[in-house]
Every structure is written in C-alpha cells, then in structure tokens.
Design a protein around this nucleic acid. Sequence first.
DNA 1: TAGATTGTTAATCGATTAACAATC
DNA 2: TAGATTGTTAATCGATTAACAATC
Lengths: 205, 205
Amino acid sequence: MKDDFVPDVVISRLPLYLQELNHLAKEGLHTVSSKVMAARLGTTAAQIRKDLSYFGGFGKQGSGYQIYDLIEQLQKILNMDHVWQVVVVGAGDLGRALTHYQGFASQGIEIVALFDVDPKLVGTQVGSIAVRHVDEMEDELKNLGIKIAILTVPGGVAQEVAEKLVKFGVRAILNYAPVSLMLPEEVHVQHIDPVPHIQKMMYYL
Amino acid sequence: MKDDFVPDVVISRLPLYLQELNHLAKEGLHTVSSKVMAARLGTTAAQIRKDLSYFGGFGKQGSGYQIYDLIEQLQKILNMDHVWQVVVVGAGDLGRALTHYQGFASQGIEIVALFDVDPKLVGTQVGSIAVRHVDEMEDELKNLGIKIAILTVPGGVAQEVAEKLVKFGVRAILNYAPVSLMLPEEVHVQHIDPVPHIQKMMYYL
DNA sequence: TAGATTGTTAATCGATTAACAATC
DNA sequence: TAGATTGTTAATCGATTAACAATC
C-alpha cells in the first residue's frame, strides 16, 4: 500500500509482469487473474499478488485484474510516463543490433545516439542513427541530459568509458562488456553477458 | 564438502567468479584472497568462501586461493572440461552478432551453426559460419548431439521454434526473444532481454 | 446466492552475514 | 612466532508461501 521500501527482487519482476500483460492485451483479453499470470510466467499467484500489493490494490476479488489498467499502473510505477533517451557506446555488431532493435520504442526507450572510436565506423549509418566519435559524447550527453547508456565496448576499455559516461551525467548503465564495472554506488548498473548464462546451464547438463 | 544440494543462486555466481579469476590471471597475479575477490566483484568475502565451500576447500589459510588452481576447479565444476557445441537460431542482427562473438571460444563454447527461415539470409556467410535453413536443423542437431541453443528469433515464433529445438534434443536454451517460453521443466532456459533491465533502472532514476 | 479471487497476515523456508577456531 | 585468511557454524535477515477473511 505504501512505497516505503520495496525489495529489489520485486522491482526486477515488475517489467516481466508488464511484458506478460502486454502479451495478454495483444491476445485480446481484458481481464486476468494472478493464477493465470503465474502459470504463464512460471511463478506463483501469491508472489504476483504480494509484489503488486507493495504499490496498491489493483485487482478485484472474484474477477482479477483489468489488464489495461494494470499496464498503466505498472508503467507509472516504472517511470515510463515519459520517453527515456538512451545512448549506445560501441558500434560493433552488438551495438548496432541494439541500436536498431525494434522492441525499445513501445517500451518508452529511444536510442538517440551511437558512439565509437573506430574511424572506419564513425560516420556510417545504423538505421536512422549515424555513428559519431566518442569525443562528441560529452556535448551530446550534457545537451540532452542523458541518464541511461548501453555499453557494448570491448572489456579492456569498459571501465574507462563507463567512468566517462558517469562524469557526463549518466546514472544508469546497461553493461554488455564482460567485466564488473566499479562505479559510485549511486550509479545503477545492469550486467548482461551470455557466457555466464550458458555456463550456468552447463552445470546442470 | 559434498555436492549434495547447491542452491541455484550459488551456481549463478560461479561463472562470475571464474570470469574475475581469469581477469586476475591476465593481470599476472597468482594468488587472491576472498576479500580481494569480493571487493572486485562487489560482493562479500564470506559469500565467496561459503559458495566455494559447497564444492570443497580450495584455499589456504593465511594466503588465500591459487588463481590457476581455482580456475581449473571451477571449470571442472561447470563441466567445462570439454567444448560445448552451440547453435544459434535466428540470423538477424543479434544472431549474427552472437555468432561471431569472440568471447565464447576461451570459455569452452563453440558456435557450430546458424539457422534462419529468411531466403535472403540463408546461404549468406557470418564469419566462418554459413546461414542454413531451419529445415536442416533436425539433422544437424541430431548428428552433432547438440544440447545448447541460443534463440534470437522474433517473439511471435519463439515458442514454436523452442519446442522444435527440444524435440531435436536440445536441453538448454539461451532465450533472447521477449517472451516466457513454456517448456518441459527438464529443459533449462535462461532469458536475456535488455528491456526489463532498463525498465528496472528507470524505476530507480 | 455461490464461486472466484483478491490483499494481507503469519508461518516457513532459504540465503546472507558474522564470528571464530583452525592453520598456513 | 605474528599476521592473515580459510572453512564452517550459528545467528540474522529477508523472501516466499500458505492460508483465509473480505468482497466482487
């Protein structure tokens, strides 16, 4: 009922709920119970209800949740009521793939710039975005007030580039480089790396 | 001391330890304490020692862990004593980026095939790998006994393709499609999606 | 009304942390 | 030896689950 303190695990699950709700909406449904949601997400109904209850009572006894309503509520909770402009640093394959990934737009995420140091890449076009030199990053980040960056540079320079981003105002980094970034704790870092995921599965095989 | 039961969270952390140890080795170090490791990974020394203790006592009082020795031990635990052949399904930007990602080889992961349905993509070359039609998947997977697949197809067909993979013998899927796959529970699934990660950070900004 | 499902409390379960004897 | 650091136990902390009164 109060947004006093919400465990981090709960926050991590909200985007998954939102995603599933979007799927349900696309299937033409208007209402869903915690039980059905749980089955589709591979969780438990109790957990979904508990998680949502940190933010309010969005359901109705007997019938469950209004899908469109809950989508709106979750979007508000996740600060999705405005579009967040995001930059990508590193114009390798991965950086380019992310730059024209179609799934961002509908989720309030807009890629506004792509940077690299390689003179062979600078100036080339990735969809509607031109690759620019990292030297121009400072101006761009400060002018647009960018708070979120995606990092797809080689591991060897990731720390250094991340520190620059922070210096220029970035407060959240999605890190695709295979290193643990050491940054001030007020900077949010999410690490994505296929290797540990695959290795984890290797253990179980 | 016994591999009786090891919590899943612990398994998730082993690859991160391994990664950090590889970094330390590359920096020329031979020995490391749980305290130093913890500082570099942003964890606690107690957790690292506890995690490792599920598998044995690898350290020495007073001096810590032999880096090369611990790397070997972790590789053994994670079944990395042989190379795992992996296929990628979906030859879009992301699939191609992953197919020639340089970081796999050193971690015992070998991408052996890339499949798609798009006739414009089939036959094209991605590094040393030729894109093949999904119809050829069954033969390839069965012949090579492939157990691990990376899925980078559009969300709309991910479930269907995943079921095919399972039918052809795959037991672990790294899923880049923005959907929760519904598969038999003996199949291991790891889901990677930048959107939820960014949305989680949005909450905190 | 009868059936379904919520939000919430209390009970359970599991993971993290602190502490320290053992020992290199 | 003195200092450092392990592996492990016990204490703490936090998250999940079960249960159910409230109510649509």
